[in-house]
C-alpha cells in the first residue's frame, strides 16, 4: 500500500542551522537571475522592474516573519520601531543570508528614514548592471523582503534599494567566511536599503515613549 506522505502542516518546521537546509549559492543565483529576467521581459522601465522585484520580495518577507515567529521560543513580538529594525537587520538577515547586516543607521536629515547597509548582498553577488540600465539595483528583491517583514509586524514602510559606490578604504574585505568563498573580485558597491516609515508608525512609536 502506498504510504501517505505527512500533511505539510504536520511536518515540523525544521529550525535552520548552518549546513542543515542549504543549497549551493549558484543554484540560488541561477534561480534569481531567471526571476529578474522574467520581470525584465515584462516591464518598460528600470523603476518598474525594481517595483516588480520588490513586490516579489514582499510576499517572501511576510512568510519569513511568520516562520521566524513560530521558531522563536520567546513568543514575543517587537512593538518598538528600533527593535523591529534590529530584528530585521540581525535575525532575519542571519536566517536568510547567514550573517547579520553590516550596519543599521538613522538618517540625519529625515527622522522617518533609516538605512540598512550590506557590503555583500547575496542577490547582486553575480550580477553586473549594464551601464544603460542606469541606477538599477537588483537588490530590490531584498528591499521587498524587508518591507514585507516590517509591514507584517505592523510597521508599514516604503523600502528602496540603492547601490552606492564604496569610498576608499571604507570596507576592508574580511576574510571570506566558510560559506561565501566565491573567488570574486572585491565589491565596489554596497547596498543601502532606505527604510521610510509611514507617519502613523512614527507617531505611534513616539506615543509609547510618554
Amino acid at each position: 500500500m502506498n504510504r501517505q506522505p505527512a500533511n505539510i502542516l504536520d511536518r515540523p518546521l525544521r529550525a535552520s542551522r548552518a549546513g542543515d537546509t542549504m543549497v549551493s549559492m549558484s543554484s540560488f543565483a541561477y534561480l534569481y537571475s531567471e526571476l529578474v529576467q522574467y520581470h525584465q521581459n515584462r516591464v518598460d522601465s528600470i523603476s518598474e522592474l525594481e517595483r516588480r522585484l520588490e513586490s516579489s520580495g514582499y510576499g517572501v518577507g511576510l512568510k519569513m516573519l511568520e516562520l521566524l515567529a513560530y521558531r522563536s521560543r520567546e513568543y514575543k513580538r517587537e512593538i518598538r520601531l528600533m527593535n523591529a529594525l534590529q530584528f530585521v537587520s540581525t535575525t532575519v538577515w542571519k536566517s536568510l543570508f547567514g550573517k547579520p547586516a553590516d550596519s543599521l543607521e538613522r538618517s540625519i536629515d529625515h527622522a522617518d528614514e533609516y538605512m540598512i547597509v550590506d557590503y555583500e548582498p547575496l542577490t547582486s553577488t553575480f550580477v553586473s548592471v549594464p551601464s544603460d540600465f542606469g541606477q538599477l539595483s537588483v537588490d530590490a528583491y531584498m528591499s521587498g523582503i524587508i518591507a514585507g517583514v516590517l509591514s507584517g509586524a505592523g510597521f508599514s514602510a516604503r523600502v528602496t534599494a540603492h547601490s552606492v559606490q564604496l569610498e576608499e578604504g571604507e570596507h576592508s574585505t574580511a576574510p571570506p567566511s566558510q560559506f561565501n568563498s566565491t573567488n570574486l573580485p572585491p565589491r565596489t558597491e554596497k547596498a543601502v536599503f532606505l527604510v521610510k516609515f509611514s507617519p502613523e508608525v512614527l507617531e505611534r512609536d513616539a506615543g509609547m515613549d510618554r
Binding site: 537546509t21 549559492m25 543554484s27 534561480l31 516579489s56 517572501v60 512568510k63 536566517s95 561565501n180
Partner: peptide, 18 residues
C-alpha cells in the same frame, strides 16, 4: 558556497506565483 534553502524555496515560490 551555500545559500539558505528556505530563501531558495520562497524565491521559487515568488516566481511560480508570478
Amino acid at each position: 558556497p551555500k545559500a539558505n534553502a528556505e530563501l531558495f524555496a520562497l524565491t521559487y515560490g515568488a516566481l511560480v506565483t508570478e
